[in-house]
Design a binder for these strands. Structure first.
Lengths: 244, 244
DNA sequence: GGGCGAGGTGTACGGCGTACACCTTCGATA
DNA sequence: TATCGAAGGTGTACGCCGTACACCTCGCCC
């Protein structure tokens, strides 16, 4: 059901030479997303993108105001890939599924987290997503008050990502150097080494390579959702700030 | 206003009343932090920074390898401001205090979150901080396994910040336009408007300006810490992944 | 056929990070 | 005291970047 972008109803006499399809915002954004997927966001430049589209750099500016707006548009493209919410009485499960769907969409575009976090204004579709996510909490009976704080607490996790702050460095390939580095690390940062090697599937490799991102994400998400549920059940309200 | 940090203007002809103190890595990093605090991280350039130090741009490269390393160094300066851990039997309270201390340090440098998240390698002092934070959980009796996932779940919150994804836009000053925008928003994003106006101290202003960042941060931190404590008390281990 | 507006081009500017060759300074040494 | 070498600072230049601005080229409608 691919609907032709160019309706052409009423076009007269199909001339043999096809008119070159003109650029439009949609094509520009899609190309930008595709290019960033391949070369990374740091290597995405207006010149780059224009070249990929077979067009002069300045042509892009007829369709996006500037690079910031291009990035906004790219975010919109990605967010549009998130599944709509599932109806049902189980708000916690529904939110969980939706956030994991967001995660799924974002994982296809490794540059997205960084770009999302750099936006200063939310594009409409982003507001749509947040609005409907809020609606899921409210429909589950959470107060507007609690939902407010819950959304803040979710933070970037509502997009299905957690910025990995300072990812574990890759150990050197050379086994001798690796052994030395490992020994050194165990002395300097004993606790880091201790937890890096804990609870891994493959206990074989000394340095914790086997970290399961998906598990870590769901672990954190569930801690949060369970906490939200508990607060909801005990009738939490921000008036009880003095709880502590 | 002094143009350069080192007031020895001119000094042509050689009779330097003040021997110019040579640059060093420390001074470069401190100047960079100070400059970023004032003009923002986007306006921090090597040229900029050099000018502030009264020196040619390329002089900086005798003290830092490149701009990335400069940013690494700036992060180190900020992380060094975090208080050491308090000893004591209450791991949860101690972690809480430490993280809030980190938050306090980071709040003095608004650019820090963005730069921290852009680092690909952790400088030694950063590893020190993580190592000692991990040590606090372990000292509290949490298993290495649980602590591992707990650290992931904390994520950037261990640095005392949560990247505000898509901050609420400032309403226009013009009260007429603001009213129109508000009406429009209430129609398009009813849930957002509902929670934005919920639980605020100043119920007067229609659009939620009164969001208390510190409260939101502590709310989320406590949900997480309470969750960690609960899992610890019930002897959680990653072997019980099938819990759900 | 004349005008018009949308879309595409070419040139140019100022900014960036930084490679590279050079110069200056100064303390250690002969 | 003369010399030298290294550490620290400079000047120039290159290749990127985003984008302002004037221009050109269509295809459409009166």
């Amino acid at each position: 059901m691919s609907r032709t972008e160019n309706g052409t109803h009423g076009e007269k006499g199909g001339s043999a030479r096809f008119p070159r399809i003109p650029l439009n915002r949609e094509r520009v954004l899609r190309a930008a997303v595709g290019l960033a997927d391949v070369v990374g966001i740091d290597s995405l430049s207006m010149r780059n993108l224009a070249q990929g589209l077979g067009v002069a750099p300045m042509a892009l500016y007829k369709h996006v105001a500037n690079k910031e707006e291009l990035l906004d548009g790219m975010v919109s493209v990605v967010v549009a890939e998130i599944d709509p919410p599932l109806p049902g009485p189980d708000w916690k499960g529904a939110v969980r599924e939706r956030v994991l769907s967001a995660r799924h969409a974002l994982l296809r575009h490794p540059w997205a987290p960084q770009v999302i976090e750099s936006r200063t204004q939310a594009p409409p579709i982003v507001l749509d997503y947040m609005n409907s996510l809020i609606g899921m909490f409210l429909a589950g009976g959470l107060s507007a008050d609690l939902t407010h704080h819950v959304m803040h607490a979710l933070g970037s996790r509502m997009w299905g990502f957690t910025q990995e702050v300072f990812p574990t460095p890759q150990p050197p390939a050379n086994p001798e150097a690796r052994e030395a580095m490992f020994r050194q690390a165990a002395e300097t940062y004993p606790h880091i080494v201790q937890i890096a090697t804990a609870g891994l599937h493959d206990e074989g490799s000394a340095v914790g390579r086997g970290c399961d991102d998906q598990f870590e994400f769901e672990f954190a998400l569930d801690v949060l959702l369970d906490g939200f549920e508990r607060l909801h059940n005990q009738g939490w309200s921000s008036a009880s700030r003095a709880q502590r």
